[in-house]
Amino acid sequence: MPAPSALRARAAVVRALREWLWGMGFIEIEAPALVRSAALEEHLEALAVDSGAPERWLHTSPEFAMKRVLAAGLPRVFSLGPCFRGEERGPHHAAEFTMIEWYRVGCDYRGIMDDLVALLGAAAAAAGRSLPEVEHLTVAEAYRRHSGRSADADPIEAARTWVNDVELKLTAPTIVRDYPASEAAFAAIRGDVAERFELYWEGVELANAFTELLDPSELAERWSKNNLARVAEGRAPHPVDHRLIEAVGRHPRCGGIALGVDRLVMVLLGVDDIRDVRVGG
């Protein structure tokens, strides 16, 4: 059980997140946790719910529902609540964790960066801290600065270098942008990079954001490619959500972001175990 002081600080941070978003005109959406399609990415595992046929899962993020809401005509929306992921264990992971996502119509990932820096300032203030200067790096710059060389052409070796030599050196709050196009997920592609960024702080990954993809056939293609890779590894494919594909073709140009609330509180309080900042199930 977290210390009472940690639970108080957490509540203050969560309240500050909500108030900042409400103040900027974002509408809170209660995204469904029980879904018929839970993930797009190859390396993401959803928890199945044993409720008979048809099969249902607990959502891995509110993203699918949020995009349908954007397509329905709301320009600024957010969701703050529990998400669920399997196979992720250790001091920075819990099967149930809290995530905040927000989407803003009429901007790309740069608009979301501005939102994020302002929101982090509000969250830090709620925890009695001030926000250090936020650094901005491209993925390529992060590799060169911290590992002394460019990313390996082999994605697995590149990832290993990231884990061993780069990630832990991102101690200042750092926005790392422009991922390889092969790691786009829901991001729009510009040249050979995905318009996607992550936030690191104290060596911990806190958030992931995109200039959201607007091309439904491109999304369907990525989904099927990921599912083929999953099947080849002996994993079940993720069911495709056709309502989402249709929504991606209709919602306006926008940016969106998912921020791990537990980890943000951990970093703000200087603790290294998620179980010290959230009540366990």
Binding site: H43, R89, R160, V163, E183
Partner: peptide, 30 residues
């Protein structure tokens, strides 16, 4: 520590203590 950099495959970062010498090494496993 489980880490999943980018959107790719997952790794586990470990610290291992030599049972005989007490030396601690860090190793990462995919």
């Amino acid at each position: 520590q489980f880490v999943k950099p980018g959107k790719g495959t997952a790794f586990t970062r470990t610290k291992l203590k030599n049972l005989i010498t007490g030396n601690v090494i860090e190793r990462t496993y995919r």
